[in-house]
Write a protein that binds this DNA or RNA. Structure first.
Lengths: 320, 320
DNA sequence: CTGTCCGATACCCGGCGGGTATCACAGCGT
DNA sequence: ACGCTGTGATACCCGCCGGGTATCGGACAG
């Protein structure tokens, strides 16, 4: 029938996240009664119970869970519409490229250099974010394109182009016994008693089990590593954010990580297309200077240059 | 700042599509002055001119074009939120699978049989639509999954799984000189004087140049073919919608068509996952009964069974 | 039993969305 | 030249709905 207003969706998301009408109303800057009324009307309009208000607390129903996910996506889309329109009206709009802080440092540097070198290219602004934030920033219009990493990031819903694949390395204090090894396996680094692997949140926000500390931000992680309290397995190119007294040792059987450039589907923007083309061009540049004779034939920890294949959003689980 | 309301987006889309305030207001069921006011406020809020109202007519600015595209996507997302929530609250919700009428007939039949045979599977409802409609129906929540065809359909923004690849055939009146050939090439069928190839709209809605009639719906096409007024190059499996006195001749160099099952990214639904799994299982079933020893080795016009690869939304141009 | 916590209800008010009437202006026909 | 017509903008009014305050009702805790 009549469709929902964004205000109602915002209200519902607030309640669904807080599971508490009072706090949600507070967060929204309105009083509690209008909020209750709005949610009630929303339920009546949809003909579905969204919340179980049982004594002492509010819980999401199945339908409520669906609406929470869908409403977030819809609100992102609305916000994206506003942001992209504003920026389209700005004559000297810079292109915003978002990437995880510290990842793909060398690629990013080369990409920016290449773009600066192109004659008619739009200026590019780099937005550094925390792990897993790229998808939202791309979806809600804060960014025009992103560097993301398969299989870590959620690429669902974007168009992507693979740029380069690489192995992973373990980052160890130089004094650690394992630091002298020339290669390691996952079995070697899992369950090292004094150096547990830090645990990242999965895509749904929960943490996997394990002995390591729970980590959500890059800075938390940096400090843990600097303190010698955590072991890290990261893509080889992330050696860029280097600690002086740590060494990187290739982990031969760690999953390969592919850096991809991603952009919102259906983006007909000339500027985004140019950026993607330039990034794809770097694939060849990396291939030239990596003087390994056969692509894909170099050892783990090195870069594997991808052929000109087109690829490939796919669903992934979090980095477990 | 303050974000847009869906009503404002609906209003803008109506005006942008009609390029006429009066007609747009009529379509929206409101009077013209409030509509003018709403658009004006929208422009003021965004700080961007969306429409050039020069005397005698309205035109979209660049920013207006961006907003039109983004607003459609956002409205689809909002509509999808409402529909999916309603259906999630329905205890006996059927799964809606959308596909082009007439395409992949045999696959569809087998898929439905397989799903009916599964013990705990949800009932499936099939929604048949016109060419190019699947993406919208999937995006706005009318459907839970779709059978689509690469490279014809726009797969951007969906998760997909390839099911089978096949060649294309030319559909000819039995009496036609070319009908006796056992194989044809695109050069043979292009520019046949008495049988021009029908022209489909591209993804952007425009038509390619050429001598053939412009066609938008399956029924238009069916009539043209039945009248012997148009030549058709279609996937081999679409022979299902057969005309009694037409024959299908393989076109060896026509692009291969891949039937994929697509679903909205991030769909955590158990039922959709089961459908995709069943569809992927059919890939193996097709492989078994097609007693060609080597996959991919059979002649053009036949089916090529895909290996268990994971793939691959990619941007495509329309069927030109 | 009573205090407290929390969502629901009752009721009021102001602003905004929507309506009608009208204006301003550009083509255009005669 | 002059109205006619078609278009979007302006002026102004009204009713509804979003938001506020006050209060209720039920469920624990003690």
């Amino acid at each position: 029938m009549d469709d929902l207003e964004t205000r109602e969706l915002r209200y519902f998301v607030a309640v669904a996240e807080e599971l508490h009408f009072g706090r949600a109303a507070d967060r929204l800057g309105i009083a509690q009664p209008p909020l209750s009324r709005a949610i009630r009307r929303l339920e009546r309009r949809l003909g579905v119970r969204l919340l179980d208000r049982d004594r002492r607390g509010v819980a999401l129903t199945d339908a409520g869970g669906v609406l929470l996910r869908e409403a977030r996506a819809a609100l992102d889309a609305v916000a994206a519409a506003a942001r992209r329109t504003r920026r389209a009206g700005d004559p000297k709009r810079p292109l915003v490229l978002v990437t995880k802080a510290g990842a793909s440092h060398e690629l990013l540097r080369r990409l920016l250099d290449a773009l600066a070198g192109e004659p008619g290219a739009a200026p590019v602004e780099v937005l550094l974010c925390e792990v897993g934030e790229q998808a939202r920033l791309l979806r809600d219009g804060h960014a025009d394109a992103a560097l993301m990493h398969r299989p870590f990031d959620d690429l669902a819903g974007f168009d992507t182009e693979d740029i380069l694949a690489e192995g992973q390395v373990a980052l160890l204090p130089a004094a650690h016994p394992l630091a002298s090894r020339s290669r390691l396996t996952m079995a070697d680094v899992r369950d090292v008693p004094d150096l547990p692997i830090a645990r990242w949140p999965r895509l749904d926000g929960s943490y996997p089990d394990g002995p390591g500390p729970e980590v959500r931000t890059q800075s938390q992680l940096a400090q843990l590593v600097a303190l010698g309290r955590a072991l890290l397995v990261i893509p080889a190119s992330s050696r860029a954010w280097q600690w002086p007294d740590h060494v990187a040792v290739p982990v031969v059987d760690a999953p390969e990580v592919t850096t991809v450039v991603a952009w919102p589907p259906g983006s007909r923007s000339q500027e985004v297309a140019a950026l993607v083309r330039t990034a794809a061009g770097l694939r060849a540049a990396f291939a030239r200077e990596a003087h390994h004779p056969a692509a894909g034939g170099d050892g783990p920890g090195g870069l594997r240059i991808l052929g000109p294949m087109t690829s490939a959003p796919e669903r992934t689980d979090g980095r477990a």
